[in-house]
């Protein structure tokens, strides 16, 4: 055993004794300085390592490392003993303090519903298209087979601009714009804002949002329309929802239907929302009128198709049980952040 190893063993013993009797953190720090610090024993020994004969170097090195570790261990144990005694005094952080909340965004219920509608119809191969909100009378009425004296054209129902154009009263003009620019088959939805000259109340606003659907192809039937709406109803409100078609009238479809969903609130038993009928009117639809097809240059003998329209606000109100449409346009963040 050489001198260095002796010195190491001695130092380890000393250090362990000192560590065992340490009463303060300063005592442990002094041990570190004396043995492991830059001017301490171990760096000094390390410098002497060169004088060790080569055959002893391996053992000496091992002893050196083991000694250093033993001292470090003694210091750690002592430190742990010191803190253990003080454990009840060190409280750490108060984990019950309020966390730092990241800001969370909220999608407006109208957008949520529009997004979902578009997503559902996208899965069926519909592409979303858009059209202007400042629309001409031709696209909003004439091309949609609306008689020149149809009440919907009245000043009290439709907003007119000073240049004779209008604020579109429906998303249906997008049908015309798409058919004018695309050869059949076409398969689109058109979500967007529409305007009616209604004084805002619980169920009306100056504007609201619709999503229009249009599919023109060979041999499209009312059964196809019904099936797509049934698919939509189930995707939107769950697998138990039923739909009911009722005959109705729209100038741009023939046959025309209105479609109802079985009440999404009471499941069809009857409640306030469905006025005890068990059904909720969702919107209008039908087979595209041959006159409309002719207007855009489609041959009604070859092509047929369906169109439908949904009110986004109505869906949002139904699904989220929102009692008053005005809440949707009031933008109170306490309301918006519920969704």
């Amino acid at each position: 055993m050489n001198k260095i190893i002796e010195a190491i063993n001695q130092a380890v013993g000393e250090a362990q004794r000192r560590a065992a009797s340490a009463t303060a953190a300063a005592d442990i720090e002094q041990i570190r300085i004396d043995y492991l610090g830059r001017n301490g024993l171990f760096p000094e020994l390390s410098r002497q390592m060169g004088s060790v004969p080569p055959e002893e170097r391996k053992d000496t090195g091992c002893a050196f490392n083991a000694g250093r570790q033993a001292i470090q261990q003694a210091m750690d144990d002592a430190a742990a003993k010191l803190t253990a005694g003080k454990a009840e005094k060190f409280t750490g952080i108060d984990v019950t303090l309020p966390g730092r909340a990241p800001r969370t965004g909220h999608r407006h219920p109208i957008s949520q519903l529009a997004d979902e509608c578009v997503a559902i119809f996208s899965r069926l191969g519909f592409t979303a298209m858009e059209g202007p909100e400042l629309e001409d009378v031709y696209h909003n009425f004439d091309a949609l087979n609306t008689p020149a004296d149809h009440p919907s054209r009245d000043l009290q129902d439709t907003f007119y601009l000073t240049d004779g154009r209008i604020l579109r009263s429906q998303t249906s003009p997008v049908q015309i714009r798409v058919m004018e620019t695309h050869e059949p088959p076409v398969r689109i939805v058109a979500p967007g804002r529409v305007f009616r000259r209604d004084t805002p109340d619980a169920t009306h606003g100056m504007n609201f949002h619709q999503i229009e659907g249009l599919y023109i192809d060979r041999n499209v039937s009312l059964a196809d329309l019904k099936s797509v709406l049934q698919y939509f109803a189930r995707e939107m409100f769950g697998k138990d929802v039923k739909i009911r078609l009722r005959p109705h009238f729209f100038p741009f479809t023939e046959p025309s239907v209105e479609y109802d969903f079985s009440c999404v609130v009471c499941g069809g038993k009857g409640c306030n929302v469905c006025k005890n009928s068990g059904w909720i009117e969702i919107a209008g639809a039908g087979m595209v009128d041959p006159n409309v097809l002719k207007t855009v240059g489609y041959d009604p003998e070859v092509w047929s198709g369906y169109a439908f329209g949904l009110g986004i606000e109505r869906l949002a109100m139904l699904r989220n049980h929102i009692p008053d449409l005005r809440l949707l346009y009031d933008n109170d963040v306490r309301f918006l952040q519920q969704f």
């Binding site: 069926l124 695309h182 088959p185 398969r187 059964a223 019904k226 078609l245």
Partner: peptide, 12 residues
């Protein structure tokens, strides 16, 4: 009016 499998061409 029967419910039929949803069919249709991808158009756009």
């Amino acid at each position: 009016v029967p419910e039929v499998p949803v069919k249709g061409t991808v158009c756009h």
